[in-house]
Amino acid sequence: MANRPAPALGLRDGDREELARLTRSSSARAGLAQRARIVLLAADGVSNISIAAKVGVSRPTVIDWRNRYAAQGIAGLEDEPRSGRPRTIDHREIVAQTLRPPPKKYGVTHWSSRLLGRHLGISNGTVAKAWRDYGVAPWRVETFKFSTDPELVAKVTDVVGLYLAPPENAIVLCVDEKSQIQALDRTAPMLPMQPGLPERRTHDYKHNATTTLFAALEIATGKVTGACKARHRHQEFLAFLKQVARAYPDTGDGTELHLVMDNYAAHKRVEVRDWLAANPRIHVHFTPTSGSWLNLVEVWFGIIERQAIHRGTFRFVKDLNAKIRAFVDGWNDRCHPFVWTKTADEILKKANRQTTSNTSH
């Protein structure tokens, strides 16, 4: 005689609503929601074989959870306590292993949460939680550079002191050049931004010629004096210094110009030194070697790169130069002061930490 389907499972008062809630809950454990669905289907008279096919479990599993519910109600659907002492995992041990390089047999440079979890015999979620708790991020890497300039302390103190407390009756200008700016032309026209769609452009482009942007940033106002030139030799740099001098003429009131610049060879050519000597109202302050980040005009170069150059399309260098000049004019209409906040002592303390860390490895 053929097997008959099991009779509909009787539900206890109020359980149908709770079981239905468990199947819809996003916070209930997946196993508990699955068991609630099995019981509901069984209560609707669905055969055990059909329930197994719908839920994706075996027929014996369906029978087991039917019997558990019949004996204990909804409480019977919970996981039973496991024997033995719960395993405790020290997050410090996980982090300590993370800080050690992976064994050579893995052939990787750093741990992933899954690889470390498999190595330690724990879940990758446990590893990830330990990393979050201790602020460890093996997938991240940053660069740093420390200066070996023998005059590091003096130069940092000089430049930062100029930013924080400029001399009376002085204008502080940060001077540098952004070289090799390429006029890039896309192989197809840009597709403009539309509701629901960002601006789109082809991944490939045509290389045209380059230009060099010379700039002098007045930190008290944010005003920029700029010039685009085909090359960035000492001849072009000297011509730009003369342009800056004309932009800030000597009015006879004793106003001095203090220029912050890096150690690029063109800045120290004899022709440049001779011209500076002939213009004693102009004083030069050099940033330390490998310390051009102390020059605030580098911040402004980042602004013009993001806002005018990076997403631009230029068929010719003259188009690129025109865009740069338009940006400088627009910037000067809305410019703002550039405020330095870190003291020389704070910078030197951090530089000493990096140097000590590097030499100790």
Rank of each mutant, 00 (worst) to 15 (best):
M1E: 00
M1Q: 00
R4V: 03
P7K: 01
P7M: 02
D15W: 00
R16M: 00
R16W: 00
R21A: 01
S27C: 00
S27V: 05
G31S: 06
R35F: 08
D44V: 10
G45H: 06
N48W: 09
A53F: 14
S58P: 13
R59L: 15
Y69K: 06
A70P: 05
A75K: 07
G76W: 03
G76A: 10
D90P: 01
I94W: 02
L99P: 03
L99H: 08
R100N: 09
P101F: 13
K104Q: 12
V108N: 04
S112H: 12
L116E: 06
H119K: 07
L120C: 09
G121T: 14
N124E: 15
G125L: 12
V136S: 04
A137Q: 14
T143N: 06
E151P: 01
L152D: 07
V156D: 01
D158I: 08
V159D: 02
V159W: 02
Y163E: 07
L164F: 10
A165K: 14
A170Q: 08
L173T: 09
C174G: 08
D176S: 11
Q182Y: 11
P192H: 09
H203W: 12
T210V: 14
A215D: 13
A216M: 14
E218K: 04
E218D: 12
K229A: 15
A230T: 13
R233S: 12
E236T: 10
F237N: 04
L241T: 06
K242N: 03
Q243V: 09
A245W: 01
Y248P: 00
D250C: 02
G252D: 03
L257I: 01
V260G: 00
D262H: 00
D274A: 08
I282E: 03
H283C: 12
T287W: 02
T287I: 07
P288W: 07
G291Q: 04
V297I: 15
W300S: 07
I304M: 11
A308G: 07
A308T: 15
I309A: 04
G312R: 02
R315G: 04
F316P: 00
F316C: 03
L320R: 02
L320P: 04
R325G: 10
A326K: 06
A326R: 05
F327R: 04
V328E: 06
T341Y: 05
T343L: 11
D345H: 12
E346C: 13
K350W: 09
T355W: 08
T355R: 09
S357T: 12
